[in-house]
Simulated scan of single mutants.
Amino acid sequence: MSGEIYDQAGRPKPQEVRLKKSEKALLVSFEDGHSFRFPAELLRVESPSAEVQGHGASQKQTVSGRRHVGIMGLEPVGNYAIRITFDDLHDTGLFSWAYLYELGLNQENVWETYLDNLARAGLSRDP
């Protein structure tokens, strides 16, 4: 590649992915200059898996009890995604670079919505 910072679909490419196991966080830097720190809990409860997202917006599940979840490992999937294995053994979501980028941009709102959904359902972040 000739230093392109965007893929063929016009989405930013990742520059660096760093797992911080002790901090229970994933750091992702993109070639356009954006960098995001994702807590493992956020990634777990917003997993792009069918188990969490369902098969449509109305089927999305509110996942509770994941305050202390960690990340055991990362596995690249082609040039477009990573598979994250969490220590609760969830590993079915493929986190595309585009998904992580959008999640990073909207992290604050996504987190607040998650907390609101937990409260509305009478659920807790604690196991």
Results as ranks from 00 to 15, higher is better:
15 Q>F: 04
82 I>H: 04
45 V>R: 14
125 R>M: 08
56 G>I: 01
62 T>A: 02
64 S>Q: 10
28 V>K: 03
41 E>C: 06
28 V>S: 05
64 S>E: 13
32 D>K: 15
87 D>E: 13
126 D>W: 02
67 R>H: 09
18 R>C: 10
52 V>R: 06
63 V>E: 05
108 E>F: 07
115 L>D: 11
23 E>R: 03
46 E>L: 07
91 D>V: 02
82 I>L: 10
71 I>Q: 01
72 M>G: 04
108 E>H: 15
72 M>V: 00
82 I>M: 13
20 K>P: 01
99 Y>S: 01
124 S>M: 10
42 L>Y: 04
74 L>C: 02
6 Y>W: 01
66 R>M: 08
122 G>L: 13
112 E>A: 12
6 Y>N: 12
16 E>C: 08
38 F>C: 10
61 Q>L: 08
96 S>Q: 10
62 T>V: 09
113 T>E: 13
87 D>S: 10
76 P>G: 06
50 A>R: 14
27 L>F: 15
15 Q>A: 08
91 D>H: 14
115 L>A: 05
62 T>S: 06
122 G>A: 07
2 S>Y: 11
3 G>R: 04
13 K>S: 03
105 L>D: 05
80 Y>I: 12
68 H>T: 03
107 Q>Y: 12
126 D>L: 07
19 L>N: 05
11 R>K: 12
74 L>R: 01
13 K>D: 06
126 D>Y: 05
34 H>E: 14
114 Y>D: 13
5 I>Q: 15
52 V>F: 07
92 T>N: 09
64 S>R: 02
33 G>P: 14
68 H>E: 11
45 V>W: 14
122 G>H: 10
28 V>P: 15
73 G>Y: 11
60 K>F: 04
112 E>R: 15
56 G>M: 10
98 A>G: 10
40 A>H: 03
2 S>A: 14
86 F>S: 00
108 E>A: 13
1 M>R: 09
39 P>Q: 10
1 M>E: 07
13 K>A: 06
113 T>H: 12
18 R>F: 07
91 D>E: 06
42 L>R: 14
18 R>N: 08
93 G>E: 02
71 I>L: 01
72 M>F: 12
120 R>K: 12
117 N>C: 12
30 F>Q: 03
75 E>P: 02
26 L>N: 01
28 V>T: 15
64 S>W: 02
35 S>P: 07
114 Y>L: 05
42 L>I: 11
126 D>M: 07
51 E>L: 13
5 I>G: 09
119 A>T: 04
80 Y>W: 11
108 E>C: 07
119 A>Y: 11
31 E>C: 05
49 S>I: 01
